[in-house]
Computed example of a mutant assay.
Amino acid sequence: MGLPWDFHPLDGERVHLDLVRDDDFDALYALQSDPEVCRFLLFEPRSRDEVQKVLERDAGNRRLAESGDFVQPAIRDGSGELLGTVLLRIESAADRTAEIGWMLRPAAQGKGYAREAAALLLDLAFGELELHRVIAELDPRNAASAALCRRLEMRHEAHHLENLWLKGEWTDTETYAILDREWRSPA
């Protein structure tokens, strides 16, 4: 199939990925305003107004067609409760590469939800989207995300020293990646 691609919900054994909705506002605000959740992300805890703008932006992103396009669906449990979000952003349509990321509320962490959601996006990336390479970039102090990359069988490719001025300090970035021929959905 490849690009362009229009969003459709994705279902795993325990998680459901669909677009964020207006009624997700309170859960999204709790997530994105939490200092612990935001600690290793590129943004500070967000205000209610900032979260509203993010909700409006993300709910409208439904199509992946060219470099820079992204979808950031909600990760929901079986009851439909928002557990977090997962991101797939086209880095280069010509090179068939994308970036993946995740954000999970603290009560849902450590239970395999992020792994299952990320695996659904990798299945999509290397299946329907026919991508060649997917990367994850993260702060190396975020041990949980680094461990998730390893569980997804992503390869550690780089550790960039003090390459980003963020939140008043120089921070490092690690890059993990996986190719289409390397991906096999973890059980």
Rank of each mutant, 00 (worst) to 15 (best):
Q32W: 11
V71E: 01
S47G: 12
R76H: 11
S33C: 13
A147D: 10
P140F: 03
R181H: 15
A119S: 15
Y29K: 06
R62G: 12
P9G: 07
K111H: 15
E116W: 06
S145M: 00
E36K: 14
D22E: 15
L19K: 12
K167G: 05
E169K: 08
A93C: 05
F40L: 09
W165D: 07
E174M: 13
N142Y: 06
A27S: 15
D69V: 07
W5F: 15
F7P: 00
D11H: 13
G2M: 05
G112L: 04
L164Q: 07
R141Y: 05
E36F: 13
H160C: 10
I100L: 15
W183I: 10
Q52I: 00
L166Y: 03
D34A: 08
I100V: 13
F126T: 02
G78Q: 11
N61R: 15
L10A: 12
C149I: 00
H16N: 12
G101Q: 02
P35Q: 14
L19F: 07
G112A: 08
A187S: 15
E157R: 08
W183M: 12
L152C: 04
F70V: 00
R150D: 05
Q72T: 14
S47V: 10
P35M: 14
A74E: 00
F43E: 12
A125T: 03
S92C: 05
E182A: 09
S67P: 11
R57C: 10
G78D: 08
N163D: 14
L3K: 04
R151W: 01
S67E: 12
Y29G: 00
L17P: 02
M1I: 07
A30L: 15
P9T: 09
R21P: 01
L179I: 09
D26E: 14
Q109T: 14
D24T: 04
N142C: 08
P45C: 11
A94D: 13
V37N: 10
H8S: 11
Q32G: 04
A108C: 09
A59V: 03
T175C: 13
Y176D: 01
E162Q: 15
A114R: 01
D139A: 05
D18Q: 13
L131Q: 03
A136S: 12
D180Y: 00
G60F: 06
D77Q: 05
G60Q: 09
Q32P: 03
G68H: 07
E130G: 07
N61S: 13
F7Y: 13
E128M: 01
L28H: 07
D22L: 14
Y176V: 01
M154R: 01
A93F: 01
V86K: 02
D6Y: 08
A119H: 04
W165N: 06
I178A: 02
A147V: 06
F43Q: 13
